[in-house]
Amino acid sequence: MKEEILYEIKGLYRDDFRVKGYRFGGGENSVCIMGSMRGNEFQQIYVCSQLIQKLKQLEEKGKIVDGEGILVIPCGNPYSVNVKKRFWTIDNTDINRMYPGYSLGETTQRIAAGIFEQIKDYRYGIQFASFYMPGNFVPQVRVMKTGMENIELAKQFGLPYVVLHHPRPFDTTTLNYNWQIWETDAFSIYTTSTSAVDKESAKQAVDAVLNFLSKQGIIQHRGYEGFISRVVESHDFVNVRTAFAGFFEKIAEAGERVDKGQILAKIVDPYTGDVRQEIVSPIEGIIAFAHNESMAYQNTAVYKLIAEENEA
C-alpha cells in the first residue's frame, strides 16, 4: 500500500487541506473507490477504512492481480468533516456538484478538478454515496442512466438492488455522472447509514466491492457471493408521504417486507400526543428507504417502497 497526497490547498489558520489516496497493486488504472465528499458522511469514510484493511491483507498475500491498480480515497473533504458541516466550510458549496471541476475556478471547483484529474482515467469508479434526505437505505448500487451505463456489471456487486436513476439537471455535475461521461463504468453504493457508522452494513459494502473486484479479475478473492440483484428504476419507487407534520414514530424499518394496508409509522402531535396520521403501506413490497429523524415535515417521503408484484 502506498499513501499519497492527491490534492492539496495551503490553509491560512487551519492545517493544509489534503485529499489522500491509498494505492494497491500497480500498472493499469483499474478501479478507483471514493468515500466521503460531504462532512456528514462518516459511514462512507468508515467503509473505505475497512476496505483498505482488506486490500492491505490481500496485497500482502499477493492476491492483487499483476498489472491491476486500485486507488481508495476515503475522504475528499476533510475540512468539512472536521467541523461537522455537510458542505464546504466557507461558502457551503457541495464538491459533489462541481464535477468535472475547473482548475482555475473557485475553491470547490478546483478541489473537484484536482480530484477528477487523478481519477478520471479509471476503468471502474465506485463511490460510497449518501442521500440528501435523512434516512436508512436497503443496500443498493445506483447507476445513472446516461446512455453509457452498464447494468450487468452493477449486478456483480451482489447487493440486493441495482437502482437505475434518471439524472436531473443538477445531477450532471456529480462525480458519478462525469465518470460515465469520461467512459469510466461508474457505480454509487448506498449503505444503510450516513452520519452514524453501521458496521454490519459497512461489512456488506466491503464484501460487495471485493466481490466485484474479484469478478473483474482485479483481485483473487473468494468470499461473499451476495444476492442476485434485482434491477429497479428509481421512478418505480412508491413514495409514502406524510400528510401532516409532527413526531415521526417509526414502526417498520428499511429492508422489511410489508403488506398492503400495514401501518408503517405514526405522525404524532408534538404537544398533545394525539395521532395525526397513521402512515399505511399502499402496496405489498420491500422498504427501500425509511426516514430516521424524530420529526417529519408535511409532504415528506418517509418511506420508499419497491412493489412486490415487480419482483423478478
Partner: peptide
C-alpha cells in the same frame, strides 16, 4: 442562503413537483 433545515439551494429545485417533498 439556502433552506436551512434541508441545506438545499431553493434555486435548484424549480419547477418543483406538486407530489414531491415540502
Amino acid at each position: 442562503r439556502g433552506i436551512p433545515a434541508f441545506d438545499l439551494d431553493m434555486n435548484r429545485i424549480f419547477p418543483g413537483n406538486h407530489h414531491g417533498d415540502m
